[in-house]
Simulated assay, not measured.
Amino acid sequence: MDTYYQGRGDITKDHRALVSGFVKATKLADSLLGIRFLGRTRPSSPAVVTPTPAASRAS
């Protein structure tokens, strides 16, 4: 599942909902695979690439 945010308002709104909700008392553990800058002539939009763990399925 990819997440696309456009602008600071989108990021702030979604993260505020997460932090005040079900991830309130959790710790974030993540790793960074890379950062790509999007754009042909003047790359100005960073795209952060992180691994996404596979969701476990109940048998």
Rank of each mutant, 00 (worst) to 15 (best):
M1C: 10
M1P: 02
M1Q: 08
M1G: 10
D2C: 05
D2A: 05
D2L: 10
T3E: 07
T3R: 13
Y5K: 04
Y5I: 08
Y5G: 03
Q6P: 03
Q6K: 15
Q6S: 12
Q6D: 11
G7Q: 11
G7N: 09
R8Q: 13
R8H: 05
R8D: 11
G9I: 05
G9R: 09
D10Y: 13
D10R: 15
I11F: 10
I11D: 03
T12N: 08
T12L: 13
K13W: 01
K13E: 02
H15L: 14
H15V: 03
H15G: 01
R16Y: 14
R16V: 12
R16I: 10
A17G: 01
L18P: 00
L18N: 03
L18M: 11
V19S: 05
V19G: 00
S20P: 00
S20E: 04
G21V: 01
G21D: 00
F22H: 09
F22D: 10
F22T: 06
F22R: 13
F22M: 11
F22A: 12
V23Q: 02
K24S: 07
K24G: 04
K24T: 12
K24P: 01
K24A: 07
A25V: 00
A25W: 00
T26K: 09
K27M: 09
K27Q: 11
L28M: 08
L28T: 10
A29N: 11
D30H: 10
D30E: 14
S31M: 04
S31A: 04
L32W: 08
L32Q: 05
L32C: 06
L33V: 04
G34Y: 00
I35P: 01
I35K: 03
I35V: 15
I35L: 02
R36N: 01
R36S: 03
R36G: 01
F37G: 00
L38H: 09
L38P: 07
G39E: 05
R40G: 06
R40L: 08
T41G: 11
S44W: 15
S44I: 12
P46W: 06
P46E: 11
P46M: 12
A47I: 04
V48C: 06
V48H: 02
V48W: 15
V48Y: 15
V49W: 04
V49G: 00
V49D: 01
T50C: 07
P51Y: 04
P51S: 06
T52I: 08
T52Q: 07
A54N: 08
A54T: 15
S56D: 01
S56H: 02
S56E: 04
R57M: 06
R57V: 13
R57L: 10
S59F: 02
S59A: 08
S59Y: 00
